[in-house]
Structures are given as C-alpha cells and as structure tokens.
C-alpha cells in the first residue's frame, strides 16, 4: 500500500479495489504508521479506487476511532460518484469530510 507522511498528516493511497482480502493489509500498514509517527490527520485518497465494500468501511471506522481518540480528523479525497454513494450510505460522511476540489 502506498502512503505519504507529512508532519502529522498521513495520506493513504487506496488500491483499485478495497475488499476483505486487502483490507487486512491496509489496516496493518496504517496502524503501524499511526502508532509510530504521531499521526493526527488521515487522508484517504480514493483516486485509484473504483470498488469498495463494507470491509473498507470497517477499515475507515477503525482508523477513525484511533485518530478521534487523539483529537484528530479523517478526510476523503478524489472520491468518484460510486465512492461518495458508498460513504454516504454507510454513514461515513458523519465522521469524515469529503474534500471536493474545484474542477479545473
């Protein structure tokens, strides 16, 4: 899994498909960075992602719990219509902000 750390902000570049199979890997990678690097903000970058099921929601919820406890926030960027629908439907929009960019 690709990620980028800038000060206390972790950007996770999500894979093309997020299901139960690769959720485990995302969880482990994210947790080890959060634990060791004092991460306060997480940005989930959905640029490459066109499929996500409830396993992905589980991963986001779990990271939110950790980060929220430390007073942090989570964000979602580059979400396509499908991802917005999944995030809204599952109530994730109550705990994360979807960052909308101006289309250039």
């Amino acid at each position: 899994m690709r990620y980028q750390l800038q000060e206390n902000c972790l950007t996770i570049f999500l894979p093309k498909e997020i299901d139960h199979h690769n959720a485990e890997d995302m969880r482990e990678t994210a947790d080890s960075i959060i634990k060791n690097q004092h991460v306060k903000y997480i940005i989930f970058d959905f640029d490459k992602t066109d499929f996500m099921d409830s396993s992905g929601i589980g991963v986001i919820m779990g990271r939110y719990r950790t980060i929220h406890y430390l007073g942090g926030e989570i964000w979602a960027v580059h979400t396509n219509e499908r991802m917005k629908k999944i995030l809204t439907m599952s109530g994730m929009t109550n705990i994360l902000q979807i960052y909308e960019e101006d289309t250039l």
């Binding site: 969880r27 099921d53 409830s54 396993s55 929601i57 589980g58 991963v59 919820m61 779990g62 439907m89 599952s90």
Partner: peptide, 14 residues
Amino acid sequence: DLERAGMGFAFMEA
C-alpha cells in the same frame, strides 16, 4: 474484533 462494520447485509439490501 475483526473490525467488521456489521454492514454486510445492509449493503446487500441497499
């Protein structure tokens, strides 16, 4: 413990 969101059937129904 496995961080299941508990949304499997809800997603299927939706």
